[in-house]
Amino acid sequence: MKIIVNGNEVVLDKEVVVKELLDKQKVSMQQYVTVQVYDDIISRDDFEKIALKEGDSVEFLYFMGGGAQ
């Protein structure tokens, strides 16, 4: 099955939940990543519950500081 992650196609051999996708994409510090699936911001409590479906569009959004200092 294929899904889109941050604009890039990712091929998966089976259905995964959000947490498994984060692992597969080697995202570190997962507790600080915001995950958006289509028009929903996924609650961190649901990372292990929400399964991704064929064709889903997923965005990993990151905290970014920077600027002054």
């Binding site: 507790q31 600080y32 915001t34 958006q36 959004l61 970014m64 500081g65 920077g66 600027g67 200092q69």
Partner: peptide, 24 residues
């Protein structure tokens, strides 16, 4: 989108992580 600040020290600042000067 981002709900609440991350815990202190969880996310590196420019000082800790570095930043290419032109990014700003």
């Amino acid at each position: 989108i981002f709900k609440n600040p991350p815990p202190p020290d969880a996310v590196p600042t420019c000082k800790q992580a570095g930043v290419l000067g032109v990014m700003g």
